[in-house]
Each structure stands twice: as C-alpha cells, then as structure tokens.
C-alpha cells in the first residue's frame, strides 16, 4: 500500500509504540463439533464401500495400464483441442455479437441460438452422419475425399464439442467484455487507439478477470462431457475403462478407476485455473490473493484461533 504520509509528523509523539491488545480470541466450538460429525459420516461411507462386493485390489493393477493411459491422453487431447476451438470461436462470436454491424451481430446471434439450442449429443451424431448430406468433401485442389473417410471419430468429436462450446464461450466472453467500464474504451479512443487495439490492449485483458472463472468451469465440464464420444466410436478414458471392465469382469471397479482419473485431471485443471486468475488479478486489488498453500496454512490457523484475514 502506498498512501501518502505527511513527512513532518507531530514532534510530541512518544517514541514507544502503543501496547498491542492482548485478548482471548472467540472460541469456535461449533467448528470442532461440525468437523467431528463430517468425519464420522465420511468414515461410515468409507466403511460401507470397503465392505461392499467390490474388488478394490484390481484398481491399482489397472491404474497405469497402457490402455487407460492412452484413454487419459485421448481425453486430454480432445478436451484441450475442443476448448481451444471453443475459446477462439467464443471470443470472435462475442465480438461479432456486440458489433455495430447488423450482419455480423445477426450471424453470431443465430449461431448461438442454434448451437445452444440443441443437445451436444445430437450435434455429435449429426456431424457423424453428415455423409447423408454430403457424399464427398471437395476443397478444390487442396483436398478431396469421401465424407466418411474425412469425418473421423476424432474430427467428429472435435467439431461437435468445439463448435458447441464456442456458443457457450461467446456468452461468457460477452459478459466479460460488458463488465469493463465504458470509461476505459473512451480513454483508449481519446488516445487515438483504434477499435481493434482498444479491444486487444485495454478491454480484453480486463474482461479476462470475469472470463477465466466460468471458463475453468467449462474446461472441467468439457473434460467430463468428452465421455459422450463413445457414440461416435472414439476411444477415450471412459470407453477404454469400460472395455477393460467388460473383458476382465471388473465392470464396477473400472468405473471407479475412471472416476479417480477424472478427479485427478479436474484437480490439475483447478490448480491451473487458480494461478491464471491470480495472473489476471494484477492491478485489480492492492495485494495479490494468497496461493493455495498460503491459504491452507491460514485456514489451519483459523481452525484453532483466528480468521484468515488476521493472517494477512
């Protein structure tokens, strides 16, 4: 913090600092009780599952199985590629939607209306079966092929998820762009910056603060939604797991295994999101928010005596 302080302080202030308050902090007994109850319930659930007819031993055996790892890789690639299309498309669509040009804003409106209005599963199946509409794909001298050869399961999944996601990301980006104060645009224009530069240098960096949290949500959603691609014969984490389950007889166990992997991946993404938020928060508050480690430590302290604010 940099508040201007008068250089010439009163001469008669005593040199010794005032005695700090020593008080007994408020005891939060409710926290201990609720923690005990929660732990008890958790223990009961763990015991129930441990006693169930589930062969837990096979999960570690298959956890790093090459097919599972391949599934994880495919899930990750599909998630990241589809989100890349979604974010790029979303930014373009949101700018089109907010444009003064009635043609571009109508196109964006129609796109969002269509892709948000139909289930993503239906969209996947439509992409997969577009061969009924187009026999061949002909891009002149560049590329020419049968539709069914061109539209591989991966491309189907990528287009299906990516284009669907773009519609949702467009609305998230639009909310972010609208959250930036109009004075920012005016100040930028008054400096002679073009509309495009104003967006890129001034508006979008500030909009990111509003855009990143819901986008993190979308990434995690996408990670799990990719499990729908079994309908177009694409092999990812869930499909590989259930195949192993069918052939080895450990069906339920393999579902748990897949669930563990999804949890691992979403956790990794959440951590990434946290640091991204920290990056875009620069300048917005006087001090950066604490890192998870710092927060964990602060929470541990607050559990016994004081609130985390006291630690900052």
């Amino acid at each position: 913090m940099t508040v201007e302080i008068n250089k010439a302080g009163p001469e008669d202030t005593p040199p010794t600092p005032p005695e700090a308050i020593k008080a007994i902090p408020v005891r939060h007994y409710g926290r201990y009780v609720s923690a005990l109850i929660a732990l008890g319930i958790l223990a009961a659930i763990v015991v129930a599952f441990a006693k169930g007819d589930i062969n837990w031993g096979v999960i570690p055996d298959y956890f790093f199985d090459s097919r599972i790892l391949r599934g994880v890789r495919e899930t990750l690639i599909l998630t990241l590629a589809a989100m890349a299309i979604g974010i790029a498309g979303g930014i373009v669509l949101s700018i089109m939607r907010m444009s003064k040009n009635p043609v571009t804003s109508s196109i964006a409106w129609f796109y969002i209306w269509f892709f948000r209005g139909t289930p993503v599963l239906v969209q996947l199946l439509v992409w997969f079966n577009l061969g009924f509409v187009f026999d061949t794909i002909n891009l002149g001298p560049i590329y020419k092929d049968e539709w069914s050869d061109f539209m591989t399961p991966f491309l189907t999944a990528l287009l299906g998820f990516g284009l669907n996601e773009a519609a949702y990301m467009a609305e998230i980006c639009r909310a972010g762009l609208m959250s930036v104060d109009e004075g920012q645009t005016e100040a930028s224009h008054a400096l002679g910056m073009s509309h495009r530069k104003t967006l890129r240098r001034v508006v979008i960096p500030q909009a990111m603060r509003m855009i990143v949290p819901p986008t993190g949500n979308e990434v995690i959603n996408m990670l799990k939604t990719t499990s729908l691609v079994y309908v177009v014969q694409y092999y990812e984490l869930l499909k590989e797991s259930s195949d192993i389950g069918t052939s080895s007889g450990a069906t339920v166990e393999m579902m748990f295994l897949a669930a563990f992997w999804y949890l691992v991946l979403t956790t990794v993404f959440s951590i990434g999101q946290y640091y991204l938020e920290r990056y875009y928060a620069r300048g917005s508050s006087r001090s950066l928010p604490p890192t998870p480690l710092q927060r964990l430590r602060a929470n541990l302290f607050s559990f016994s005596t004081r609130s985390p604010e006291a630690k900052r």
């Binding site: 920012q184 930028s188 002679g192 500030q206 300048g283 917005s284």
Partner: peptide, 21 residues
C-alpha cells in the same frame, strides 16, 4: 483515431488502465 492523437483528454474519473502500471 488519427485526429484524436493530437488531442489529449483527461477525465473526471481518471480512466487509467488498471491492469498496467
């Protein structure tokens, strides 16, 4: 935009870019 280069403006609410030093 080209003409605005030569005209500086100062606003009531400053409108500094908050993400820049």
């Amino acid at each position: 935009a080209l003409k605005r280069r030569d005209i500086g403006m100062v606003f009531q609410r400053f409108n500094l870019f908050p993400h820049m030093t």
